[in-house]
Protein backbone atom coordinates (compact mmCIF):
# COMPACT_ATOMS: atom_id res chain seq x y z
CA UNK A 1 0.00 0.00 0.00
CA UNK A 2 1.25 3.48 -0.79
CA UNK A 3 1.38 6.00 2.00
CA UNK A 4 -1.94 7.66 2.71
CA UNK A 5 -3.59 9.83 5.36
CA UNK A 6 -6.51 8.43 7.33
CA UNK A 7 -9.43 10.58 8.49
CA UNK A 8 -12.43 9.70 10.62
CA UNK A 9 -15.02 12.49 10.33
CA UNK A 10 -17.98 12.48 12.74
CA UNK A 11 -20.49 14.30 10.52
CA UNK A 12 -21.55 14.24 6.88
CA UNK A 13 -20.60 17.90 6.47
CA UNK A 14 -17.13 17.24 7.83
CA UNK A 15 -16.67 14.26 5.48
CA UNK A 16 -17.74 16.21 2.41
CA UNK A 17 -15.58 19.20 3.38
CA UNK A 18 -12.57 16.88 3.80
CA UNK A 19 -13.25 15.32 0.42
CA UNK A 20 -13.53 18.67 -1.31
CA UNK A 21 -10.41 20.13 0.29
CA UNK A 22 -8.15 17.08 -0.24
CA UNK A 23 -6.02 15.97 -3.16
CA UNK A 24 -7.01 12.51 -4.39
CA UNK A 25 -9.41 11.53 -1.61
CA UNK A 26 -11.43 8.30 -1.37
CA UNK A 27 -14.20 7.33 1.00
CA UNK A 28 -13.67 4.19 3.07
CA UNK A 29 -16.43 2.04 4.53
CA UNK A 30 -15.91 -1.65 5.43
CA UNK A 31 -12.81 -1.63 3.25
CA UNK A 32 -13.18 -5.20 2.06
CA UNK A 33 -12.78 -4.21 -1.55
CA UNK A 34 -10.83 -1.00 -1.10
CA UNK A 35 -8.09 -2.23 1.25
CA UNK A 36 -7.17 -5.23 -0.97
CA UNK A 37 -7.13 -2.82 -3.92
CA UNK A 38 -4.79 -0.47 -2.06
CA UNK A 39 -2.55 -3.34 -0.97
CA UNK A 40 -2.12 -4.31 -4.61
CA UNK A 41 -1.28 -0.69 -5.40
CA UNK A 42 -4.10 -0.59 -7.91
CA UNK A 43 -5.24 2.69 -6.36
CA UNK A 44 -3.29 5.33 -4.49
CA UNK A 45 -5.61 7.79 -2.73
CA UNK A 46 -3.72 10.35 -0.70
CA UNK A 47 -6.56 10.62 1.78
CA UNK A 48 -8.84 7.89 3.14
CA UNK A 49 -12.03 9.31 4.63
CA UNK A 50 -13.64 6.68 6.86
CA UNK A 51 -17.44 7.09 6.87
CA UNK A 52 -18.26 4.58 9.60
CA UNK A 53 -18.35 7.01 12.52
CA UNK A 54 -21.08 9.17 10.94
CA UNK A 55 -24.33 8.46 12.83
CA UNK A 56 -26.68 8.93 9.83
CA UNK A 57 -25.04 5.95 8.11
CA UNK A 58 -25.96 3.43 10.79
CA UNK A 59 -29.11 1.66 11.84
CA UNK A 60 -31.96 -0.37 10.41
CA UNK A 61 -35.56 0.91 10.45
CA UNK A 62 -38.50 -1.18 9.26
CA UNK A 63 -42.03 0.16 8.70
CA UNK A 64 -45.05 -1.53 7.10
CA UNK A 65 -43.88 -0.41 3.65
CA UNK A 66 -40.12 -0.03 3.75
CA UNK A 67 -36.86 -1.34 5.10
CA UNK A 68 -34.34 1.46 5.50
CA UNK A 69 -30.73 0.47 6.10
CA UNK A 70 -27.88 2.84 6.92
CA UNK A 71 -25.05 2.62 4.41
CA UNK A 72 -22.41 1.64 6.99
CA UNK A 73 -24.49 -1.31 8.22
CA UNK A 74 -22.48 -4.50 8.09
CA UNK A 75 -23.65 -7.55 6.15
CA UNK A 76 -23.77 -9.59 9.37
CA UNK A 77 -26.15 -7.05 10.95
CA UNK A 78 -28.55 -7.19 7.98
CA UNK A 79 -28.37 -11.00 7.94
CA UNK A 80 -29.12 -11.22 11.68
CA UNK A 81 -31.83 -8.53 11.84
CA UNK A 82 -35.13 -10.05 12.97
CA UNK A 83 -36.99 -7.12 11.40
CA UNK A 84 -35.31 -7.54 7.99
CA UNK A 85 -35.79 -11.31 8.14
CA UNK A 86 -39.50 -10.81 8.76
CA UNK A 87 -40.02 -8.07 6.14
CA UNK A 88 -37.79 -9.25 3.26
CA UNK A 89 -36.28 -12.65 4.13
CA UNK A 90 -34.52 -12.87 0.76
CA UNK A 91 -32.62 -9.66 1.55
CA UNK A 92 -31.42 -10.96 4.92
CA UNK A 93 -30.53 -14.27 3.26
CA UNK A 94 -28.59 -12.46 0.53
CA UNK A 95 -26.61 -10.53 3.16
CA UNK A 96 -25.82 -13.79 4.97
CA UNK A 97 -24.44 -15.30 1.76
CA UNK A 98 -21.83 -12.61 1.04
CA UNK A 99 -18.19 -13.69 1.26
CA UNK A 100 -17.58 -15.42 4.58
CA UNK A 101 -18.22 -14.76 8.27
CA UNK A 102 -15.24 -12.45 8.72
CA UNK A 103 -16.06 -10.48 5.57
CA UNK A 104 -19.65 -10.06 6.75
CA UNK A 105 -18.37 -8.66 10.04
CA UNK A 106 -16.68 -5.76 8.21
CA UNK A 107 -18.22 -5.28 4.75
CA UNK A 108 -21.08 -2.78 4.48
CA UNK A 109 -24.21 -2.49 2.34
CA UNK A 110 -23.30 1.05 1.30
CA UNK A 111 -19.76 0.14 0.38
CA UNK A 112 -20.95 -2.74 -1.79
CA UNK A 113 -23.64 -0.64 -3.45
CA UNK A 114 -21.32 2.31 -4.07
CA UNK A 115 -18.59 0.07 -5.49
CA UNK A 116 -21.02 -1.76 -7.84
CA UNK A 117 -18.79 -4.75 -8.49
CA UNK A 118 -20.40 -6.76 -11.32
CA UNK A 119 -20.30 -9.88 -9.12
CA UNK A 120 -21.55 -8.25 -5.91
CA UNK A 121 -24.80 -9.45 -4.33
CA UNK A 122 -26.46 -6.29 -3.04
CA UNK A 123 -26.88 -4.50 -6.40
CA UNK A 124 -29.34 -7.22 -7.47
CA UNK A 125 -31.55 -6.63 -4.41
CA UNK A 126 -31.33 -2.85 -4.79
CA UNK A 127 -32.42 -3.06 -8.44
CA UNK A 128 -35.06 -5.77 -8.07
CA UNK A 129 -36.64 -4.15 -5.02
CA UNK A 130 -36.61 -0.76 -6.77
CA UNK A 131 -34.80 0.80 -3.83
CA UNK A 132 -34.34 4.51 -3.32
CA UNK A 133 -30.75 5.53 -2.62
CA UNK A 134 -30.54 8.47 -0.23
CA UNK A 135 -27.32 10.44 -0.47
CA UNK A 136 -26.08 13.51 1.37
CA UNK A 137 -27.69 15.64 -1.35
CA UNK A 138 -30.55 13.80 -3.13
CA UNK A 139 -32.54 10.62 -3.68
CA UNK A 140 -31.64 8.34 -6.59
CA UNK A 141 -34.02 5.63 -7.86
CA UNK A 142 -32.32 2.27 -8.42
CA UNK A 143 -33.17 2.31 -12.14
CA UNK A 144 -31.02 5.43 -12.57
CA UNK A 145 -28.31 4.46 -10.12
CA UNK A 146 -26.42 1.55 -11.74
CA UNK A 147 -24.49 2.71 -14.80
CA UNK A 148 -22.17 -0.15 -15.73
CA UNK A 149 -19.15 -1.90 -14.23
CA UNK A 150 -18.07 -0.18 -11.00
CA UNK A 151 -20.02 2.88 -12.15
CA UNK A 152 -22.96 4.54 -10.43
CA UNK A 153 -24.84 7.83 -10.49
CA UNK A 154 -22.91 8.99 -7.43
CA UNK A 155 -20.97 12.17 -8.14
CA UNK A 156 -17.43 12.67 -6.85
CA UNK A 157 -17.71 13.37 -3.13
CA UNK A 158 -21.36 12.30 -2.90
CA UNK A 159 -22.05 10.00 0.05
CA UNK A 160 -24.55 7.15 0.02
CA UNK A 161 -26.27 7.58 3.39
CA UNK A 162 -29.06 5.00 3.47
CA UNK A 163 -30.92 2.57 1.27
CA UNK A 164 -34.70 2.44 1.29
CA UNK A 165 -36.16 -0.87 0.10
CA UNK A 166 -39.86 -1.22 -0.67
CA UNK A 167 -41.23 -4.32 1.00
CA UNK A 168 -42.47 -6.56 -1.80
CA UNK A 169 -45.27 -9.12 -1.70
CA UNK A 170 -42.55 -11.72 -1.92
CA UNK A 171 -38.97 -12.05 -3.12
CA UNK A 172 -36.38 -14.75 -3.71
CA UNK A 173 -32.65 -14.85 -4.35
CA UNK A 174 -30.68 -17.63 -6.02
CA UNK A 175 -26.93 -17.65 -6.50
CA UNK A 176 -24.34 -19.90 -8.11
CA UNK A 177 -20.99 -19.09 -6.57
CA UNK A 178 -17.49 -19.46 -7.81
CA UNK A 179 -16.24 -22.11 -5.39
CA UNK A 180 -12.88 -20.38 -4.87
CA UNK A 181 -13.74 -16.69 -4.66
CA UNK A 182 -17.36 -17.20 -3.53
CA UNK A 183 -18.40 -14.29 -5.72
CA UNK A 184 -21.54 -14.88 -7.79
CA UNK A 185 -20.99 -16.32 -11.26
CA UNK A 186 -24.68 -15.71 -11.77
CA UNK A 187 -27.41 -14.74 -9.34
CA UNK A 188 -31.02 -13.66 -9.69
CA UNK A 189 -33.13 -11.56 -7.33
CA UNK A 190 -36.83 -11.88 -8.19
CA UNK A 191 -39.44 -9.78 -6.41
CA UNK A 192 -43.18 -9.39 -6.85
CA UNK A 193 -44.16 -5.87 -5.88
CA UNK A 194 -47.41 -4.87 -4.27
CA UNK A 195 -48.63 -3.37 -7.57
CA UNK A 196 -48.34 -6.85 -9.11
CA UNK A 197 -45.21 -6.19 -11.16
CA UNK A 198 -42.30 -8.60 -10.98
CA UNK A 199 -38.76 -7.27 -11.22
CA UNK A 200 -35.85 -9.58 -12.00
CA UNK A 201 -32.29 -8.36 -11.42
CA UNK A 202 -29.27 -10.41 -12.46
CA UNK A 203 -25.80 -9.98 -10.99
CA UNK A 204 -22.48 -11.75 -11.53
CA UNK A 205 -23.18 -12.45 -15.18
CA UNK A 206 -23.79 -9.31 -17.25
CA UNK A 207 -20.92 -7.65 -19.07
CA UNK A 208 -22.27 -4.27 -17.98
CA UNK A 209 -22.85 -5.29 -14.37
CA UNK A 210 -26.20 -5.76 -12.67
CA UNK A 211 -29.20 -5.56 -15.04
CA UNK A 212 -32.94 -6.14 -15.19
CA UNK A 213 -34.01 -9.12 -17.27
CA UNK A 214 -37.16 -7.55 -18.68
CA UNK A 215 -38.28 -10.54 -20.78
CA UNK A 216 -38.37 -12.66 -17.64
CA UNK A 217 -40.18 -9.88 -15.76
CA UNK A 218 -42.97 -9.82 -18.38
CA UNK A 219 -43.52 -13.56 -18.19
CA UNK A 220 -43.36 -13.69 -14.38
CA UNK A 221 -45.74 -10.75 -13.99
CA UNK A 222 -48.24 -12.83 -15.99
CA UNK A 223 -47.51 -16.05 -14.13
CA UNK A 224 -45.12 -16.23 -11.18
CA UNK A 225 -43.94 -19.80 -11.63
CA UNK A 226 -40.64 -21.30 -12.78
CA UNK A 227 -42.55 -22.89 -15.65
CA UNK A 228 -43.33 -19.45 -17.03
CA UNK A 229 -39.63 -19.14 -17.88
CA UNK A 230 -39.56 -22.34 -19.98
CA UNK A 231 -37.91 -21.73 -23.33
CA UNK A 232 -36.72 -18.24 -22.40
CA UNK A 233 -33.03 -17.74 -23.11
CA UNK A 234 -30.72 -14.78 -22.68
CA UNK A 235 -28.28 -13.54 -25.31
CA UNK A 236 -24.72 -14.69 -24.40
CA UNK A 237 -23.31 -11.53 -26.01
CA UNK A 238 -24.66 -9.64 -22.95
CA UNK A 239 -22.72 -11.93 -20.58
CA UNK A 240 -19.22 -11.77 -19.12
CA UNK A 241 -16.84 -14.51 -20.20
CA UNK A 242 -13.70 -15.25 -18.23
CA UNK A 243 -11.49 -18.10 -16.98
CA UNK A 244 -14.23 -19.11 -14.53
CA UNK A 245 -17.10 -19.38 -16.97
CA UNK A 246 -17.58 -18.60 -20.66
CA UNK A 247 -20.44 -16.33 -21.71
CA UNK A 248 -22.72 -19.08 -23.00
CA UNK A 249 -22.40 -20.95 -19.69
CA UNK A 250 -23.22 -17.81 -17.73
CA UNK A 251 -26.24 -17.25 -20.01
CA UNK A 252 -27.42 -20.74 -19.11
CA UNK A 253 -26.76 -20.12 -15.40
CA UNK A 254 -28.89 -16.96 -15.53
CA UNK A 255 -31.93 -18.94 -16.66
CA UNK A 256 -31.34 -21.56 -13.98
CA UNK A 257 -30.86 -18.96 -11.23
CA UNK A 258 -34.01 -17.09 -12.26
CA UNK A 259 -36.02 -20.32 -12.04
CA UNK A 260 -34.50 -21.20 -8.67
CA UNK A 261 -35.24 -17.72 -7.30
CA UNK A 262 -38.90 -18.20 -8.29
CA UNK A 263 -38.96 -21.67 -6.78
CA UNK A 264 -37.50 -20.23 -3.54
CA UNK A 265 -39.64 -17.11 -3.14
CA UNK A 266 -39.60 -16.08 0.50
CA UNK A 267 -35.99 -17.16 0.88
CA UNK A 268 -32.77 -17.96 -0.89
CA UNK A 269 -31.09 -20.77 -2.76
CA UNK A 270 -27.30 -20.52 -2.57
CA UNK A 271 -24.90 -23.04 -4.06
Amino acid sequence: MYATTYHKPRTLAEAVALYESSDEPTYLSGGHTLIPTLKNRLAAPQHLIDLRAIPELSGIAVTSDTVVIGAATKHAAVAASKEVKAAIPALAGLAGSIGDVQVRHMGTIGGSTANNDPAADYPSAVLSLNAILHTDRREIPADEYFQGLYTTALEPGEILVRLEFRIPDIAGYAKFRNPASRYAMAAAFVSKHRDGHVRVAITGAGNEGVFRWTEAEERLTENLTAKALDGLAIDPSRMMGDMHAPADYRAHLVTVMARRAVQNLGGTHIV
Binding site: I35, V101, Q102, V103, M106
Partner: peptide, 25 residues
Protein backbone atom coordinates in the same frame (compact mmCIF):
# COMPACT_ATOMS: atom_id res chain seq x y z
CA UNK B 1 -5.71 -11.09 0.23
CA UNK B 2 -8.64 -11.55 2.67
CA UNK B 3 -9.22 -15.14 1.66
CA UNK B 4 -7.35 -17.59 3.89
CA UNK B 5 -8.33 -16.41 7.38
CA UNK B 6 -4.95 -17.18 9.02
CA UNK B 7 -4.91 -13.58 10.34
CA UNK B 8 -8.33 -13.85 12.04
CA UNK B 9 -8.58 -11.98 15.35
CA UNK B 10 -11.54 -10.68 17.34
CA UNK B 11 -12.18 -6.97 16.86
CA UNK B 12 -14.64 -5.74 19.49
CA UNK B 13 -15.75 -9.35 19.92
CA UNK B 14 -16.19 -10.32 16.27
CA UNK B 15 -13.94 -12.43 14.06
CA UNK B 16 -12.31 -10.31 11.34
CA UNK B 17 -9.38 -10.70 8.98
CA UNK B 18 -6.75 -8.41 10.43
CA UNK B 19 -4.93 -8.13 7.08
CA UNK B 20 -7.89 -6.13 5.80
CA UNK B 21 -8.42 -3.66 8.64
CA UNK B 22 -6.38 -0.50 9.08
CA UNK B 23 -4.80 -0.10 12.51
CA UNK B 24 -5.88 3.54 12.51
CA UNK B 25 -9.50 2.43 12.00
Amino acid sequence: TTQCGACTVHLDGRAVKSCTVLAAA
